[in-house]
């Protein structure tokens, strides 16, 4: 749910990075955090376990510049990817304006990708959202690994609706900002369309 503040002239939106455990959602946010100017970002918060697995969420507030005198601020969240944290994932999806599905390109993670994407659809539907009507992008991460599945196969299985998709190596930053820009643009375009 976007929050438009006419008093402080700000547009605030929420983007959620979703995907199976260890697919690189937190790594996406960490890269964005490390490469963004200090004045454009707030503190990155990670509610993680001792072994650095996301327990509840990661949060990164980001300022993307001004449109017609309105500051555009995006709150980026990740969900915990592990299957048993489903209750937490549902909470984080509340009020979402845009979604990035981060898929793990490794062949052996295909099942986990499919399960997570199904889970995304189900959890969104529970909140009254339809993934096909939300601003939504897909990122295929870990493209540098030797055991990655062919892009055609990933596209067919994980992006049948042909939303914007990006190949990424989040640890090196490849595709990270392309994905963020694409989803942010879709969110703003949707807000404009709905106005």
């Amino acid at each position: 749910m976007s929050f438009i503040n006419y008093s402080s002239r700000e547009i605030n939106c929420k983007i959620v990075y979703y995907g199976p455990g260890l697919c690189g959602k937190t790594t996406n946010l960490q890269y964005i955090y490390n490469k963004t100017n200090p004045e454009a970002k707030g503190k990155m918060i990670s509610l993680a376990t001792e072994t650095e697995r996301t327990l509840f969420f990661d949060f990164l507030p980001l300022s993307l510049g001004e449109i017609r005198g309105f500051r555009t601020r995006f709150h980026l969240y990740t969900v915990p990817g592990q299957v048993f944290y489903d209750a937490s994932r549902k909470l984080i999806l509340k009020g979402v304006d845009g979604v990035v599905f981060v898929g793990d390109s490794q062949v052996e993670r295909m099942e986990a990708n499919i399960e997570s994407l199904d889970n995304l659809r189900t959890n969104l539907a529970e909140q009254g959202y339809d993934l096909d009507k939300l601003p939504y992008c897909v990122q295929f991460n870990k493209r540098d690994l030797p055991n990655s599945a062919p892009l055609e196969e990933l596209t067919e299985v994980l992006n049948p609706t042909k939303v914007p998709q990006f190949e990424a190596v989040a640890t090196k930053g490849v595709g990270v900002f392309d994905t963020l820009k694409a989803v942010a643009k879709l969110v703003l375009t949707e807000l404009k369309r709905g106005s």
Partner: peptide
């Protein structure tokens, strides 16, 4: 988009 929160000067005050 449904359920959007909009804040105006008067109410914020």
């Amino acid at each position: 988009m449904s359920n959007q929160l909009v804040m105006y000067e008067e109410e914020l005050q």
